[in-house]
Structures are given as structure tokens and as C-alpha cells.
């Protein structure tokens, strides 16, 4: 995917070291995420994918290095600046993160009430639209505890896209979903990105998702504690210099020959 020449990439990770106390999770991370990318953070279990996302979201402070959004340091920004940057984001968490004391409609309406210029009537329309977009039309008055896990993931997505975010972050969006729901979620993410121009950052190790929608990726290695490759996953699958990455992307291809098919319409 070609990215229009821009002064600075949308998100830059510079010399990032992540550690919990003395335990270093990952070190020396350097990569850029361009505008309009669907960027996948991949790696084996426990390599620090979700931790990296937490760093990018500013929930955890880096041990060293920094994260820049549109060339501005997020790591060194003031609390107000951070809030302003965060307002352009939509985030879904691994377990949904829906407010359990609110109905789905109230959950989706909350960011709109807090940060938008919409009137009450308009908010109701927007909420109905966002829920319909994720296939949950008519579920406005349900509480998160009353719907299934897959629906919860989609409801969380509806809340994340409430403010038409510029960047969408997903932590394991398809974990625990059946293949069809997972595919539909991929389609939805892709469609959102196509029609609204959002940039998408996904933490996942679902190969089907990765090949279906990703345009760029980084691979975090759990043993060497650093990134060992980055690029279009479809290219890395066949041409990565790192055997580990090729193994990962072919589901241990040298162990058992399983052909991976790439959905052509999503390239």
C-alpha cells in the first residue's frame, strides 16, 4: 500500500524498551505505522504484544525510548496533550471493557456525550447507527452481561468507533470468536478503514486475520526480547530472513505442510 508523502508517520516507536521492574519484556523497538495502514503486532504468546499496545496507549510508561504520534512525543506530552491525542483514538480491550452498569446504548453514547458536539437526538441516531454497523441493531437496552462474548466484542467495537476515530486499536479482536464471526469482524475492520480512512493497529496471532487484512506488521520475539522483523506479513511469510517469523506465519510450516491461502480481495 502506498502512503502519501507525509512529514512524519502517524505513529513512530523509537528505541522503545519495555520492562516490568527488572524484567525486560522487549528492547530496542523501532518501527513506524503509516496513515491508513492496518498494522499487526504479532508474536508468540507472552512476547509482550499486549504490553506494547499498553505502552502505545500510554497505560504503562516505557522504561526507555518514546512513542510519537504525528511526530509529537506522546511519552513526554502533558496530561492535556495526551487527552487531546487520545480523543482521536478508538480502543477495544481483550475482554471488551464495556461498562457493566450501563446498557449498550449508554456505553456507546458515553464518548459522544463527553466529547462530541451532537445533540441528544443526534446521539441516539448515531448510537443506533454504530450498533447497526456491528450487527447489533435492536440491542440498545441490553446490559453487557446479557449478551454473548462475540456480541460483546462487537459492542466494544461500536463504542470504539463512536467518535469516528483516526486510529483504532484492537487487542486480540477475534480471540474467542468462531471462524465466521471472526471473518465478519475482519471485514468490518477492513470496511471501516476503507470508508473512514482510519488507521488500525491490531494485536493478534490469528493468521487468517493477519493475511486477510494486514498491510504491515512487526514481529516481537519472545526469546531475544526484541523485534526481529517487520513488513507486509504476506511478504514475510515467504521472504523473511528469520526462520522463526516464517514458521510463525506458516503455522509451523516446516513441521507440517499446511498451505495458507491469502484472501485476494483484501490486498
Amino acid at each position: 500500500m502506498t502512503v502519501a508523502p507525509a512529514p512524519a508517520p502517524l505513529i513512530s516507536i523509537r528505541e522503545l524498551t519495555m520492562a516490568y521492574g527488572p524484567v525486560v519484556i522487549q528492547r530496542d523497538l523501532n518501527f513506524d505505522i503509516g496513515r491508513g495502514d492496518i498494522f499487526v503486532i504479532m508474536g508468540g504468546s507472552g512476547c509482550g504484544k499486549s504490553t506494547l499496545l499498553k505502552h502505545m496507549l500510554g497505560l504503562v510508561a516505557p522504561a526507555a525510548g518514546e512513542i510519537l504520534y504525528s511526530g509529537e512525543s506522546f511519552t513526554r506530552a502533558s496530561a492535556q496533550q495526551r487527552d487531546a491525542i487520545r480523543r482521536r483514538w478508538g480502543i477495544t480491550y481483550q475482554t471488551g471493557g464495556m461498562f457493566s452498569a450501563m446498557t449498550l446504548a449508554e456505553n456507546v453514547a458515553l464518548p459522544l456525550q463527553l466529547y462530541s458536539a451532537y445533540s441528544r437526538g443526534e446521539i441516539a441516531d448515531i448510537v443506533a447507527y454504530k450498533l447497526a454497523l456491528v450487527g447489533l441493531a435492536g440491542f440498545q437496552d441490553y446490559y453487557p452481561a446479557e449478551i454473548s462474548g462475540g456480541m460483546l466484542k462487537r459492542a466494544a467495537l461500536a463504542r470504539a468507533i463512536a467518535l469516528d476515530p483516526e486510529i483504532l486499536f484492537f487487542d486480540e479482536p477475534s480471540a474467542g470468536l468462531d471462524p465466521i464471526s471472526s471473518r465478519l469482524l475482519d471485514d468490518l475492520i477492513f470496511e471501516l478503514k476503507e470508508s473512514t480512512g482510519a488507521t488500525v493497529v491490531i494485536v493478534t496471532h490469528e493468521l487468517a486475520s493477519i493475511f486477510a487484512i494486514a498491510t504491515n506488521s512487526v514481529y516481537l520475539d519472545a526469546t531475544s526480547h526484541t523485534m526481529i522483523d517487520c513488513g507486509d506479513p504476506a511478504y514475510l511469510r515467504d521472504h523473511s530472513q528469520q526462520a522463526v517469523v516464517r514458521e510463525f506465519l506458516t503455522r509451523g510450516g516446516s513441521l507440517a505442510k499446511t498451505a495458507q491461502t491469502r484472501s485476494p480481495e483484501h490486498e
Binding site: 500500500m1 502519501a4 496513515r35 487531546a84 462530541s116 469516528d164 483516526e166 470508508s195 480512512g197
Partner: peptide, 17 residues
């Protein structure tokens, strides 16, 4: 930018957009 159509989103971020 590589998306079709007009500028697709606007947000009330005075300093940015």
C-alpha cells in the same frame, strides 16, 4: 491518502484538524 471519497471524518480537536 488512499481512501476513496471526500475527507471522511472530522473531530473536535482544535489544534490538530
Amino acid at each position: 491518502m488512499a481512501f476513496p471519497g471526500p475527507i471522511p471524518y472530522t473531530l473536535a480537536i482544535p489544534d490538530k484538524l
